[in-house]
Simulated assay, not measured.
Amino acid sequence: MILDDTHAAVPQPPSAPHSALAAAPDSLIQALRPDASYAQLALAADELLALTRRGLAGDSEAYAQYQSILLDLHLPADPASEPTRRWLASQVYRVEDEFAPALPDFQPVPVEQFRAAIDAEIESRTRVRHPMSQYLFQGQPSERDVRFFLEHHWIRSYNFYSLLAELAFRFEDIRDASVFYRNLYGEAGAETPDRSHPALLSHLMTHFEIPLRIDFAALHPLEKAYLNNRIRCVRHTDVAWGLSLLYAVESVSCVNHLRIYELLQRMGVPEGPSEFHRLHGTQDEIDTEEMWELIAKYAQSETFQRTFMQSLARHFDINRAYFDLLWRQMQGPSFH
């Protein structure tokens, strides 16, 4: 993927022969054809949901396959199949709901105490405490280690704006949706598109010679699960899933980006490529406060509180497994 000097393009997904659907059950391939019948669609859904249940019940091969298929359903593709892809993905979400964390010790609390409970959970499980983060931000990482971290940081971060847009659509009241539209306005560079956040971050990738094009099919299943969960949460019809996910991300954004910026400064990276992290190390607190006001509006409901905390628990379980994977790969002999 080649960028011009002013605009960052979203990396395109791999072509069909390299996608997960190339090895998907034939029923699913047939269901995505423009002339697919209802019977073909129903068969594909039944087989995909059975695969999902096996994966979530502990079958590692089924888990890897369903995460690969789900990511392919999430990625931009033929517009004609978009409605079918979204519907199939939504059915997978319903199965995943069945496996949501049980939270046996959950107790609803008054709204004014709910934020303290959320922030305590985030503080106890934040990735800042992960050994890989401690090594990168407090140790002496090699440039190769930093490049590896930033490569996966690009995969996680380049299209964050799309998560905001998806969640905004879940709210009927424009006053609620506006919380994300204001955030999205900043992500898009406000009145200056060449300063959009993907464009700024792409400059850092270019500095480290990290390809902007992402081969999604080649990603590890745990990384696919991380990406899928983000999309799932913001597309879910219950906004508690999306609000929890984005609050967890935004509430620690400043400290995470500030530490990356400080790491880049220690490495002597110029200000231009570092600007994305300099900005995010100072400006995300306003977005967090606005989001909390929206969360508080819904947190009168015990059901909302439980789902919010289930989403938070799932996010951190997936996040931990994903970061453990990256840390193992960074330490592995094949990497060095």
Rank of each mutant, 00 (worst) to 15 (best):
I295E: 06
D97T: 10
P211S: 15
D324R: 03
Q134E: 15
V146P: 02
W87A: 15
R53Q: 12
F180T: 03
M330W: 02
I214R: 13
H74D: 10
I122Y: 03
I69L: 14
R94F: 01
R232G: 02
M267S: 12
Q283Y: 03
Y161F: 08
D105E: 15
D105C: 11
L56K: 09
E96Y: 01
D176P: 00
E285F: 05
L56V: 03
F335M: 12
A188Y: 07
A89F: 02
H315M: 10
P211H: 13
Y298A: 13
P11H: 04
Q300I: 03
H280E: 05
F160H: 06
V255I: 11
E285Q: 08
R328T: 07
Q310Y: 02
E191P: 00
L163F: 06
A296K: 11
A31C: 02
T192K: 15
L263M: 09
Y226G: 00
A9N: 08
Q138M: 14
K297G: 04
R86I: 07
E191K: 13
A20K: 04
D59P: 00
S37E: 05
H315F: 11
L167I: 07
E250F: 02
Q329T: 05
H207R: 10
W87Q: 14
D215N: 12
S244V: 04
T84W: 08
P14N: 14
Q65W: 01
